[in-house]
């Protein structure tokens, strides 16, 4: 190598490499960003449709510090979000909410659908979990367990500030009330964890949305399937 000054050569190399790399990365980012965004929204929408049967369009709202709900662009990822689902006529089917909590092995993240008509949780979908396959993952497949969420009561108490009956996990086959969750024998931790995270999330969200479906009225440009 016949570099006249090592410092100059070093700087030249690093700056040169930096420029090229920066360029490459920015190009890749610019090219893929819209596709990735689209993928994300689609994935979320698919989940919302799954927990809110009958919905064909969604919109994203954000819970503000003053307790009001405000429509935000679908790309938004941060903040307390609620996804409203609408039927073909534009009527509100329900609200979908994300909840997460510690499962057996790691954090479980799920989305659940709330129906204003039934005043109950009407479906859940696990988005992310590292539960034991065949054991903890039965929360996603077990029909008896899933039936818990056909109509899980989350009605508010008289004051409207808390759930009338907190969601409660009970042993397999012991469910007596609509706010109770029947656990799965052999996957008790995971099934309990889900009941708990639903309970926590519902206790926080229901006072904010249950009484006012009008706040989630379909805004312009809601995403349609």
């Amino acid at each position: 190598m016949s570099a006249p000054s090592p410092a100059l050569a070093m700087t030249r190399t690093l700056v040169g490499a930096g420029v090229v790399c920066g360029f490459l990365i920015v190009v890749a980012y610019e090219l893929t960003a819209p596709i990735i965004q689209e993928n994300r929204i689609e994935a979320r929408q698919a989940a919302v449709f799954e927990v809110l049967p009958g919905a064909v369009a969604t919109a994203t709202f954000q819970l503000q510090a003053d307790g009001s709900l405000q429509a935000v662009p679908d790309e938004t990822t941060a903040g307390d979000l609620v996804f409203a689902g609408y039927d073909a006529q534009g009527g509100l089917v329900g609200a979908a909410l994300e909840a997460q909590g510690m499962g057996y092995q790691d954090t479980i993240r799920l989305i659940y659908g709330y129906s204003f008509d039934k005043d109950a949780i009407i479906g859940i979908k696990v988005l992310e979990s590292r539960e034991t396959p065949g054991l903890g993952t039965r929360v996603e497949t077990d029909p008896v367990y899933q039936a818990n969420f056909d109509a899980l009561d989350v009605s508010l108490d008289a004051a409207g500030q808390a759930l009338a009956n907190p969601i409660e996990a009970v042993g397999a086959g012991k469910k007596q009330h609509p706010w109770q969750v029947d656990c799965i024998t052999g996957a008790t931790i995971s099934s309990k964890a889900i009941a708990n995270m639903l309970g926590t999330s519902a206790a926080k969200w229901m006072p904010a949305i249950a009484a006012r479906p009008e706040a989630l009225a379909r805004p312009e440009g809601a995403h349609v399937q």
């Binding site: 490499a17 790399c21 490459l24 890749a28 980012y29 090219l31 893929t32 990735i36 993928n39 994300r40």
Partner: peptide, 20 residues
């Protein structure tokens, strides 16, 4: 630096191809 660049590119490419 070069390797990190290519990895970043791949990362975005995979996310664009399939999110799951």
């Amino acid at each position: 630096l070069l390797i990190a660049t290519f990895v970043t590119v791949v990362d975005y490419a995979i996310a664009a191809i399939s999110l799951p």
